[in-house]
Design a protein around this nucleic acid. Structure first.
Lengths: 299, 299
DNA sequence: CTAGTGCACGTACATCGTACGCGCACTATC
DNA sequence: GATAGTGCGCGTACGATGTACGTGCACTAG
């Protein structure tokens, strides 16, 4: 409920500026003054001022203070010391993706990224707000690898195209499925064009139906992708493939089926039916069924 | 790849028993002997013996050792000290569910459960194998709250009934959607009857199509449930409802829409369209579309 | 009584995200 | 030129977490 301390401070300063108590050119209270007056830590005061900086309400003047007004032009580029690859946010995000791709989201830690980049852990926080924010950036960057291209003319082809792009992204970045749902409903900029493409394709439908369709479809694709992810994760953790696992656990499964009087399962086993477990096919199957259902409604 | 130490030891002992090197009545090496011979810790040796006990291959004789052969009858119930509520696994699982229901899966910790139950943290490990195993138990127990009942005669009604039961479970236990996918593809006993019910309903379909349908459907329901969960989690964390958030972030969203030339979005906003964000309706909508698609294929 | 057992569980560790606050390079002022 | 004050980068340290480890216990055969 109550805002974070740095937000309280930022709001108070914003009020003073907008009320004219602080005019352009005036110096806003220094970080150390904020520390005294509000009884907070240095970092908190700094963060509060950063909020105002992000809104272009104030700008920092090194050696002077933080002054009211938009930042002056000619942002002098800091002199890079020498040969240092010059860390930036893209670098951090890229490394995060690399680690998550290789070892899963669970292996992603700030320390790990820093070590891999050869910098100290806290240096990362200059470029990303925190781990949650980093993951959101990673999601956005990962989606960015798969541009949409032109929408096909027929609505069904257009929707299929978007779904397949999503699927391709999930396939390439197995962690994506869980990351995109994680944390609160974030604004992932590059997801918006996808939604838009589907909405455009579904102009023939009622508005609320079109929106519901979009969400349902995304939910379905992510659902299948999560199956894929958990399987891959398990295989990596245990070194046992799905087939091997099925064989190994087969006895237990059979016992449960017998105990539970699961007739349909029993028939399946009795026939010696061997299910071809191909998630690509599974994805296409469910997508096709869903689109068939939409077709039926369009008429 | 390489098995865990306790599994190696268990396998070795099992081999000796099955090879006749250890006969019924013989005493298997004591935990301390295993500690010496295999260079492992006490707990590891104990765990190895527990594996064999679970298979009824050996049984413990307090004060004597662990002897080969199935346990004798007349399992004397330990004398409960006095008035102690007598902790057991159900108690632990129940408390885990209570905490996860109230504060989400992230708030679930072994220490928290122990504190809530008034026992020491490590005492929990007598009843559950670890946190992962506990979560699997929680999933199973949560599903157990929603028995299936008789299957309706028509296949469509039958499938709908199973999907709604799933949805009800996700609705009641918001953490369920992420927990059921978490960790490896576990054997959740009470999930099997659900699968079986759908397979029975879909006898008219080809076998592989029926199985694909089942997985697709589960993926879809869980996908929608995850949307519900992340929203509830965000609301709890920030104290901001989805509507309030939409209002607050509306400006940013509008800016992005304008910047990205998202025509369908623009139309939506221009009409002042207000989407009724009801996940129950959304769930039913997607389910209906999917089933319509199946109907079309059945003909 | 002694030596040895299995078992319960308190302590301690490795790991995590990141709040905190120190020291730096810098500049207006005197 | 000395001084006092600034914003900023980042090393240290904290409070979590899951659980491996090893100690002390009740017990039994000899």
């Amino acid at each position: 409920m109550s805002e974070a301390p740095y937000q309280v401070i930022a709001a108070e300063l914003r009020r003073r500026i907008e009320a004219g108590e602080l005019l352009p050119g005036d110096r806003v209270p220094s970080t150390r003054a904020l520390v005294r007056d509000f009884g907070v830590a240095m970092a908190t005061a700094t963060k509060a001022l950063q909020v105002l900086q992000a809104d272009q309400l104030v700008h920092p003047a090194p050696g002077v203070g933080t002054v009211v007004g938009p930042p002056p032009r000619s942002r002098r580029t800091a002199v890079a010391p020498d040969g240092v690859p010059d860390l930036n946010r893209d670098e951090v995000v890229r490394m995060g993706i690399a680690i998550a791709d290789a070892e899963g989201l669970a292996a992603l830690s700030m320390r790990r990224i820093a070590a891999e980049l050869g910098v100290s852990t806290m240096a990362l926080y200059r470029y990303v707000g925190g781990k949650d924010a980093l993951v959101v950036q990673m999601v956005d960057a990962a989606l960015g690898e798969f541009p949409l291209g032109e929408s096909p003319a027929h609505w069904r082809d257009a929707v299929t195209a978007v779904a397949r792009v999503h699927w391709a992204a999930y396939r390439r970045h197995l962690w994506l499925a869980s990351a995109i749902s994680l944390s609160r409903p974030q604004l992932v900029p590059r997801l918006l064009p996808h939604t838009d493409a589907i909405l455009r394709a579904l102009r023939g439908f009622e508005k609320s139906a079109a929106l519901s369709t979009t969400i349902s479809l995304f939910a379905y694709v992510r659902g299948i992708a999560l199956v894929m992810e958990s399987e891959a994760q398990a295989e990596q953790d245990t070194g046992v493939t799905a087939d091997e696992w099925a064989t190994r656990q087969g006895d237990q499964l059979a016992a449960m089926i017998a105990a539970g009087n699961l007739t349909a399962f029993q028939e399946l086993l009795a026939d010696g039916f061997d299910y071809e477990y191909d998630l690509d096919q599974l994805f296409e199957f469910g997508l096709g069924v869903f689109l068939d259902g939409l077709s039926a409604r369009l008429r």
